[in-house]
Design a protein around this nucleic acid. Sequence first.
DNA 1: TTAATATTTAGCTTATTATCTAAATATAAG
DNA 2: CTTATATTTAGATAATAAGCTAAATATTAA
Lengths: 95, 95
Amino acid sequence: MNDTFKALSDPTRRKILQLLKEKDLSAGDIADHFNISKPSISHHLNILKQAKLVQDERQGQSIIYSINLSVMQEAMGWFLGMIGTKGETSHDEPR
Amino acid sequence: MNDTFKALSDPTRRKILQLLKEKDLSAGDIADHFNISKPSISHHLNILKQAKLVQDERQGQSIIYSINLSVMQEAMGWFLGMIGTKGETSHDEPR
DNA sequence: TTAATATTTAGCTTATTATCTAAATATAAG
DNA sequence: CTTATATTTAGATAATAAGCTAAATATTAA
């Protein structure tokens, strides 16, 4: 869960996720949306991948990235746990 | 929205929010839950306050902190926007 | 096999952030 | 008014993270 929140804390990475929500994209296509060097975008993609927020798959010369919605849903579950009735007894991190 | 995600990216701050979900607490009571100095906790509280994730109110010598669930709900809205039907036409940041 | 294209890895620099101790401020009590 | 308690502010340091350029890797095409 910490990797997820760390990954989501950067605005560039959140924008990448929004692009991937629309459709799958190659690393280069993603980089074209930013004024940031390709190696830096690659680094952001790696952080998203480690957090399992995206998946990648090689297709010829390109590597196609896609969003992993199930991890997004997990993160949303954390918020649901927080918003649940104030004063609930559980002291665990909601999953 | 960026302040919110930045604030949530630190595990100590997330734990503070979970404590405040159970009940309102003074700055000192919060600090007692961590092996971190009071000034550091005060700094974390300030970041949560700037993100409007918590509110504070003086009560005598103490300052009582409470969680602001409406901002949590806003953040959850971001996830709802992301999870919504893949390929939706809006290119704006969901609120 | 050589050249072109797409992406990542390595190594570095700079900015941000988490933490600390010491000092300042604010309230309450003697 | 002086002391005790609660919290924050200031200033410093060390770790983390974002960005860059240059070089390496992998695939496709000539």
